[in-house]
Each structure stands twice: as C-alpha cells, then as structure tokens.
C-alpha cells in the first residue's frame, strides 16, 4: 500500500486538505458545483415553463408511478448517507471502511439507475417519446441529465475504489474520495428538487392548482 507517494508520513487529521493541491481541488470542486447548480437550474426552469404542454400525449398525472419514484428516492438518499460514512472513515484513516461504504454507495446508485431505466422504458411504452411534447422533451432532458450524473458518479467512484487498492490512503488520494463524496451529495440534493418539482407537482397537475 501507498507505494508511490507519502510513504513515510503519518496521515494528518483531514488528509484531503493537507496539501495545497488537495485544498485547491476541494475549492475548485465547490465552484464546479456552483456551475452545476446553474446547469440544472436552467433545465428545471425549462421544465417548469413547459410541463403543461403535453401536445396530445400523456400528461404527468396519467403517467407517473409514485411507487418506483419513492423507492428511487429512498435508494439515493440512503446512498448519500453511506457516502457520508465513507468520508467519516476517511477522516479516521480507515481505508477498508472507506472502500466498504463506497461499494455500498455504488450498489445503491446502481439500484437507483436500474429503477430509472425501467421507468423510462415504461413511459416510452406509454407513448411518451422524447419528441412527443414539450413536456416529454423537458422531462427526459432534466431527469435523464440527472441519471447521467448518477451513472458518471458510479463509474467515478468505482474507479476510485479500484485505484485505492493499489495506492492506498494518502494525501494524494484522500482529496479524490472527499470530492467524490461532495459530488454524490450534490446529486442527491438535485434529486430532492426533481422529486418535488417533477413528480410531486406533476401529481398535483399543473394549472389545476391556480
């Protein structure tokens, strides 16, 4: 373990911020998350503006299966908690625990992704294609973009787990774990809004409220 860097050093308390590079990585990642907020925000804005324009196709109210959505929410929320545990294990310098919690996080993420793929498949069979209506395009773009982020996160964290088997826990690898944890939480925060704006508000059904 720790074959390449920082071999003879004891890990500091917060190894992700022990080097200037690590500090900058965390700082830069927060600025990236600010950009991601804007990115998702514009997709949300588009969806909110267009969600009632179904163009003769199925509407959100007819379509959504809240059971699947509830399970997806639970899986993603739990995976966010397990990635917190991974970061806590990181602070305790326990690589085995970091890897274990991240494996669980990835598995829960895969479960979430599976549900989403099933959901989209189901909707396409209900005649809701990408080009059916302004509602369908904005729905698939917003929710699919989030799903794409989950898929990317799964690949990223899997890569980190594999790398950590070789490199161990050092001041070089620690920021990677920390930043991946931030990413995963952010994905969960975005989902909270998707759950509320897309699914719950879809259940109420657009203009019927006003």
């Amino acid at each position: 373990m720790a074959a390449d860097h920082a071999v003879n050093t004891v890990l500091p308390d917060e190894p992700e911020k022990a080097t200037l590079e690590g500090k900058n990585k965390v700082l830069g990642f927060w600025l990236f998350l600010g950009g991601e907020t804007v990115l998702f925000g514009t997709l949300f804005a588009t969806f909110i503006a267009l969600r009632d324009q179904v163009n003769g196709g199925p509407s959100a109210q007819e379509l959504f299966d809240m059971k699947i959505v509830a399970w997806a929410t639970f899986l993603l929320l739990t995976s966010s908690l397990t990635s917190v545990f991974a970061t806590m294990a990181l602070h305790k310098h326990n690589l085995k625990a970091v890897q274990g919690w991240l494996v669980i996080t990835v598995l829960l993420g895969l479960g979430f992704l599976g549900l989403e793929i099933y959901e989209f498949y189901h909707y396409v069979h209900e005649e809701l294609g990408m080009t059916t209506s302004a509602f369908s395009s904005s729905f698939y773009t917003l929710v699919g973009f989030h799903g794409g982020h989950v898929a990317f996160g799964i690949c990223w964290i899997t890569g980190l787990i594999i790398q950590s088997m070789k490199k161990g826990l050092t001041v070089v690898t620690a920021p990677k774990f920390y930043v991946a944890g931030l990413y995963w939480h952010f994905i969960d925060v975005v989902w909270v809004f998707i759950f509320t704006v897309v699914y719950l508000m879809g259940m109420i059904g657009g203009k019927a409220v006003a």
Binding site: H5, A6, T9, V10, L11, P12, D13, A18, T19, L20, E21, M88, H91, K92, H93, T170, V171, V172
Partner: peptide, 15 residues
C-alpha cells in the same frame, strides 16, 4: 506536490 505538515509521529486523529 505532497508536502504534508506533519509534526508528531504519534498522532491520533482528532475528529
């Protein structure tokens, strides 16, 4: 790149 400001050798992580 990996300069660590490590003082003591016996450190327990204070969380």
């Amino acid at each position: 790149m990996a300069q660590v400001s490590n003082d003591a050798m016996e450190r327990k992580p204070k969380i």
